[in-house]
Amino acid sequence: KKVTINGVEIKFNNPEEAVKFALELAKRLNLRIEFHGDQIKIE
């Protein structure tokens, strides 16, 4: 399963991993996060 985070394609074994990764990243950098299907936007 491929997920695009800020235009960067990252391959994950499952979608939950991708979501956890994105949330952790957003929390660490104190950023806002948006989900659009397989696209995750962090700003």
Rank of each mutant, 00 (worst) to 15 (best):
A26Q: 03
A18Q: 02
K41M: 13
V8C: 13
H36Q: 12
L25I: 12
G7K: 03
K27C: 12
E16F: 11
L31Y: 08
I40A: 00
I5F: 14
K2M: 13
K41H: 11
K27R: 10
N30S: 05
I5S: 00
V8P: 01
D38W: 09
I33V: 14
E16T: 11
V3Y: 04
I33W: 04
T4E: 05
K27M: 10
D38V: 06
A22R: 00
L23F: 10
E16P: 04
L25S: 01
E34W: 09
P15F: 14
R32C: 10
G7I: 09
L23A: 04
I5R: 00
H36G: 07
R32V: 12
P15V: 11
H36C: 12
A26H: 02
L29C: 14
K41C: 13
Q39W: 15
E24Y: 09
I5E: 01
L29H: 10
V19D: 03
F21K: 04
I5A: 02
I33F: 05
I5N: 00
I40Y: 02
V19F: 12
K41A: 09
K1T: 15
I40R: 00
A26V: 06
E24H: 05
V19S: 03
L31Q: 01
V8T: 06
A26K: 02
F35K: 02
R32T: 11
H36A: 11
A26R: 02
F21A: 04
N14W: 06
K2Q: 10
I40C: 00
G7P: 02
E43W: 15
V19A: 06
V3N: 01
I42H: 01
K20A: 13
G37K: 10
I33T: 01
Q39N: 14
E24C: 12
K27T: 13
K2P: 06
E34T: 13
V19W: 13
E43I: 15
T4N: 07
P15L: 12
E34V: 09
F21H: 03
I33A: 03
E16I: 09
K27H: 14
N13G: 09
D38A: 06
F12R: 02
Q39M: 14
K1Q: 11
A22T: 04
E24G: 05
R28P: 02
I40E: 01
N6G: 10
L31W: 11
E43N: 12
L31T: 05
K20R: 13
L25N: 02
K11H: 15
K20G: 03
E17P: 03
G37L: 09
E9D: 08
E9K: 03
F12S: 02
T4C: 13
L25K: 00
E43T: 15
I10G: 00
F21Q: 03
K27G: 12
P15I: 12
I5Q: 02
I10L: 12
R32L: 10
H36I: 14
E43D: 11
L23M: 10
E9I: 12
I40V: 04
I40P: 00
E16A: 11
A26S: 07
P15A: 13
E34R: 06
F35C: 11
V19R: 08
N30P: 05
L23K: 07
T4I: 15
V19I: 14
K27N: 12
V8Y: 13
K11I: 15
V3W: 05
I10C: 10
N14S: 14
L25W: 09
K11T: 14
G37F: 09
L29R: 00
N6I: 06
E24N: 07
N6Q: 05
E9G: 05
H36W: 11
G7S: 03
R32D: 05
I42Y: 03
E43P: 03
K27L: 13
L31N: 00
K41T: 13
K41E: 05
E17L: 08
A22M: 09
L29M: 07
A18R: 02
N14F: 08
L31I: 12
A26F: 07
D38R: 02
F35T: 03
L29D: 04
K11M: 15
D38P: 03
A26E: 03
L29F: 11
N6A: 08
K41D: 04
D38L: 06
A18V: 07
L23T: 09
N14D: 11
R32K: 14
I10K: 03
N30C: 10
G37W: 07
V8R: 09
G37M: 10
G37T: 09
I5V: 10
D38K: 03
L31C: 05
E17K: 07
L29I: 05
G7E: 03
L25D: 00
Q39S: 14
K27V: 08
E17W: 13
I10V: 07
I5W: 13
Q39A: 13
N14P: 08
Q39Y: 15
R32E: 05
E24A: 12
Q39V: 15
E17S: 08
K2N: 11
G7T: 03
K20P: 02
F21W: 13
T4A: 04
A26T: 04
I10M: 09
K27F: 13
I33E: 00
I40F: 02
E16C: 08
G7C: 06
L23N: 06
F12K: 00
E17N: 07
N6C: 14
K1M: 15
R28V: 10
E34P: 00
N30G: 11
K20L: 10
K41G: 02
I42W: 02
L31K: 02
K11Q: 14
H36S: 13
R28C: 13
K20F: 09
I42A: 01
K41W: 13
P15M: 13
N30V: 05
A18I: 05
T4V: 15
E9T: 14
N14Y: 09
R32Y: 09
V8E: 05
G37A: 09
E43A: 11
L23I: 12
P15C: 13
R32N: 09
R28F: 10
N14V: 07
G37S: 08
L31G: 14
H36K: 11
K27W: 08
L29Q: 06
D38Y: 06
V19P: 00
F12I: 04
L25C: 08
P15Y: 15
N6S: 06
K41Q: 08
G37Q: 09
A22N: 00
L29G: 05
N30K: 08
K41R: 13
R32W: 07
N13D: 13
K11V: 15
E24I: 06
K20D: 07
V8D: 02
L23E: 10
I10Q: 03
F21V: 03
E43R: 08
E34S: 10
L31F: 06
E17R: 05
N13M: 11
R32H: 11
K1E: 06
H36Y: 12
N13Y: 07
K11E: 15
P15E: 11
N13L: 12
F35S: 03
T4K: 06
I42P: 01
V8H: 10
I5G: 01
A22V: 13
V19G: 02
V8S: 05
I42Q: 01
A18W: 09
E43V: 15
I40M: 03
E43Y: 15
R28S: 10
I10N: 01
V8N: 05
N14M: 06
I5P: 01
L31S: 05
K1H: 14
D38Q: 05
V19Y: 13
R28W: 11
D38S: 06
V3H: 03
I5T: 01
T4F: 15
V3T: 02
E17H: 07
E16K: 09
K41I: 15
V3S: 00
L31A: 14
I10T: 03
N14T: 15
L31P: 00
L23H: 06
K2T: 15
E34Y: 11
G37E: 11
I40W: 04
F12D: 00
L23S: 05
G7L: 05
K2R: 12
N13F: 09
T4D: 02
L23C: 09
K11L: 15
V8I: 13
E43K: 11
N6Y: 11
E24P: 01
N14H: 09
N13I: 11
A18N: 03
K2I: 15
F35A: 02
L25E: 04
K11A: 12
K1N: 14
V3M: 03
V8Q: 08
E24M: 07
V3Q: 01
F35G: 01
F12W: 04
K20C: 14
I42K: 01
F35I: 12
G7Q: 03
P15T: 13
L31V: 13
R28T: 08
A18C: 11
D38M: 06
F21T: 03
G7Y: 04
E16R: 10
T4P: 02
E9V: 13
N6F: 14
K20W: 15
N13K: 11
K20E: 10
V3P: 04
K1G: 13
E24V: 05
R28H: 10
F12N: 01
I33C: 04
T4S: 09
L29S: 03
K20I: 08
K11R: 12
F12C: 07
K2A: 11
L25H: 03
R28Y: 12
N6L: 11
E43S: 14
K41V: 15
I33R: 00
I42L: 15
Q39E: 15
I42G: 00
E43L: 15
N13S: 13
E16V: 11
E24F: 05
H36L: 14
T4M: 12
T4L: 14
I42M: 08
